[in-house]
Write a protein that binds this DNA or RNA. Structure first.
Length: 407
DNA sequence: AAGCGTATCAACCGCCAGGTC
DNA sequence: GGACCTGGCGGTTGATACGCT
């Protein structure tokens, strides 16, 4: 039985001969493919249009990369799969020269087995033991760091912590705000909770000082929920507003995240260039949402600077902080329009401000299925207005630049 | 060398969404 | 609004290659 598009034709099936390839290449390079259903007739092939399209896309296209997948590509597939699931076409977009079919085959034949051998569930990327009974072992996703690095990309660090196993899985990814492509960094680890570890290692110097992230704008309608927030140190007068307080809080959060980054670096060996770089200051941290009631908290170093004591670099950071109503905001569609999984949320980022020039909306999808089982996106994912501009120009517009924000 | 099991991957199948009439 | 067409996608199949005994 052929496709309905060519069921009336006598079509050849099976492997393509070199002669057929030659005909198809000659036709497309001279005329373009146009309407695929007309290609077989015009190219003199007894194939259906769908078959021609597939052959061209998966095999004959001149920009295809041949050969085995590199380790970097493999890491990318795993990282993006953790976020997107089996969306092979989307994953393939992160691998120039690779097709969705190729990625899918590589996943099924190779990566899947590797993950299983490592004790990881290839569907959820969780430990097999901890994902066996999802209903009794909930976990949460936290966006712990976000950096709108320029007009075109937005970097995130996300962790998912299993309530039962106390393991925290950390990954980093970037959303290209123009193409909506998501790029994961090479950093990926399943390790003991670095927060806990940090406390153990720095027992005498680390104290948990809660930072309230107060939602000061929460607008909902039938389709959207908009959230933004202001950071306030709980030990300070919550009514204190203005840049100095916000900057101070930012400074403390930044310190905490730097320590977190150092801890991650220690935890996950030398294969984590992201946190081993001296420039990780470019990763600005705002969020650590572990408690939906408190809207978030961040462990802080004992070393907290007063405004006057801060090193010059940090003062410079603060001076760049913009507290502007036009800051980009995450806009969550309060609807689950994705049929793949109930935990898949579509969201968009919109802005009329400077950081996303031209305003407008960009759409993307965050897939919580990889690790969260009772994840409530609206409760857990809170954006802050206090996102400073980057100190370093971290662009992530191509895979070659993938590690740009690692360095 | 033959037989068998496994891995790989090109190709197909069926479904879906969007566009057109 | 519904039928039809087309392109795109993910899941699956089956032919071939490969490795082991």
């Amino acid at each position: 039985m052929g496709h309905h598009c060519c069921s009336k034709q006598k079509v050849k099936r099976g492997l393509w001969s070199p002669e057929e390839d030659e005909k198809l290449i000659r036709h497309i390079t001279t005329h373009g493919h146009g309407c695929w259903s007309s290609v077989p007739k015009l190219a003199g092939l007894q194939r259906c249009g769908k078959s021609c399209r597939l052959r061209w896309i998966n095999y004959l296209r001149p920009d295809l990369k041949r050969g085995s997948f590199t380790e970097q590509e493999e890491r990318t597939i795993i990282d993006v799969h953790r976020i997107l699931g089996n969306r092979w076409a989307q994953i393939a977009k992160h691998l120039p020269g690779r097709t969705d079919n190729e990625v899918k085959n590589f996943w099924n034949s190779c990566i899947k087995k590797k993950l299983i051998a490592q004790g990881l569930d290839p569907n959820t990327h969780n430990l097999l033991s901890s994902s066996s009974s999802p209903s009794s072992c909930p976990s949460r996703i936290s966006i712990i760091a976000k950096n709108i690095s320029n007009n075109t990309s937005c970097n995130y660090i996300a962790t998912a912590k299993s309530n039962k196993s106390q393991l925290r899985e950390t990954t980093a990814f970037t959303v290209d705000t123009k193409t909506t492509m998501t790029t994961t960094s090479s950093f990926s680890a399943v390790a003991a909770d670095p927060m806990d570890d940090m406390k153990k290692r720095k027992k005498k110097t680390v104290t948990d000082v809660p930072i309230n992230i107060i939602p000061h704008e929460a607008h909902t309608n039938s389709n959207y929920m908009m959230t933004s927030a202001t950071l306030t140190n709980i030990d300070q007068n919550p009514s204190t507003t203005g840049n100095s307080t916000d900057c101070h809080n930012y400074s403390m959060l930044s310190s905490a995240l730097q320590e977190f980054a150092r801890t991650c670096s220690r935890e996950t060996s030398s294969s984590t260039p992201m946190f081993s770089s001296p420039n990780y200051n470019s990763v600005f941290g705002i969020l650590n949402i572990d408690d939906s009631i408190n809207w978030g908290s961040a462990p802080l170093m004992e070393q907290q600077y007063s405004q006057e004591q801060q090193p010059q670099q940090e003062q410079e950071q603060q001076q760049q902080i913009i507290c502007d109503d036009d800051q980009p905001q995450l806009v969550y569609k309060d609807e689950d329009v994705n049929h793949h999984h109930p935990l898949v949320m579509n969201y968009s980022i919109s802005s009329s401000g400077d950081q996303l020039q031209g305003g407008g909306n960009i759409n993307n999808t965050f897939d919580a299925r990889s690790s969260a089982t009772d994840f409530d996106f609206h409760d857990q994912f809170v954006d802050s207005e206090l996102m400073p501009p980057p100190l370093y120009n971290c662009t992530l517009n191509s895979m070659d630049d993938q590690l740009a924000w690692d360095c």
